[in-house]
Amino acid sequence: MLRLSGGRRAARPRHGGPGPRRLRLLALGTVAAAVAALPLTVASAGQVGEAGRTVVPAASRADAKTGGHGARRSPFLLGIGLATAARCGPALTSPDGIEAQTCVLTQGEDTWARTYYRNTTGGPLDALLSLMGPDGRTVQTHCATGTDDEPATCETPRERVRGAPGAYTAVTEFAAHGPDGALLLRSGSNS
């Protein structure tokens, strides 16, 4: 029997259910489990870290290099798929009506460049996205920009990381359409 204040005794539950002490222990265990699960919840929603570095979990996808037979195994697995790290420069807007942000993305052993842009000029643009690696290698992609003002993206092909992922940079140059088109905006991943 348990003693309560005032000299009365409390009877143990007859049905064998949890007493107050067990309920407190169960509540404490639930809180501990929730606290332990919080980092996984944040990781699945995406995290923003130092210097604009973003980590976004992505489900494992078929790698084009393996013919759609599954992604390569990677040391960057978080248990919920491959993590994609993004190093992005600032979002820029030109007086001519171009908005852009350029990033270097790394997922597992692959890296590539991506630019997010919006063309509000009303006319076509010439855009060139370049990914520059630590070994002097550059991969370039001509981006087809529409004349509407809807947000869009453009990416370089993925390539295997050579050296440190942080040694890669990306630049996008937007110019007026034509061979003599003036440069309207330059957006970089490390600006």
Rank of each mutant, 00 (worst) to 15 (best):
A59M: 13
S74F: 14
H177I: 12
P124L: 07
R12Q: 05
V104S: 04
E50I: 13
T147G: 02
A33D: 06
A11Q: 08
L92C: 01
L92G: 02
T169P: 00
D110I: 06
T41P: 01
R186P: 00
R61P: 00
A144W: 03
Y116R: 02
G181H: 09
A43W: 11
P157E: 04
S187Q: 12
Y168Q: 04
G89P: 01
L82E: 10
G136N: 10
L78Y: 06
L184I: 15
P39Y: 07
P124E: 03
R9P: 00
A36E: 01
L78F: 09
R118C: 02
V161A: 10
Q107W: 06
L183P: 00
L129F: 08
A36I: 11
V48R: 15
H142E: 07
E50A: 14
G7P: 06
G122A: 03
S5Q: 14
P39W: 10
A91E: 07
R137T: 12
L129Y: 11
P165Y: 11
L77C: 11
L82K: 07
V56K: 10
G68H: 06
G181A: 11
V31T: 06
G146M: 06
L131R: 04
R158K: 11
L23Y: 07
S5T: 15
Y116N: 00
S189F: 04
L2I: 14
A36K: 04
F76Y: 14
A64K: 07
A71C: 10
T121M: 08
T41Y: 10
R3M: 06
V55M: 11
P95Y: 08
A36F: 10
T153I: 08
G49L: 13
T102S: 07
E50G: 12
D135W: 14
L185R: 05
A64G: 07
S60H: 15
R73A: 08
D180K: 14
D148H: 03
V139E: 14
A127Q: 09
R158Q: 09
G123V: 15
D149Y: 07
A167H: 03
G166R: 13
P134Q: 08
A10C: 06
P18H: 09
T93C: 00
R162E: 01
D148C: 03
G97T: 04
S94F: 08
Y116A: 02
A11L: 10
D148Y: 02
G29P: 00
R12E: 05
R73Q: 03
V171G: 02
L77R: 14
A144G: 04
A37G: 04
A45V: 13
G166Y: 12
S60I: 12
T120D: 02
S44D: 05
G29T: 12
T41Q: 14
P20N: 10
A10N: 05
M132P: 00
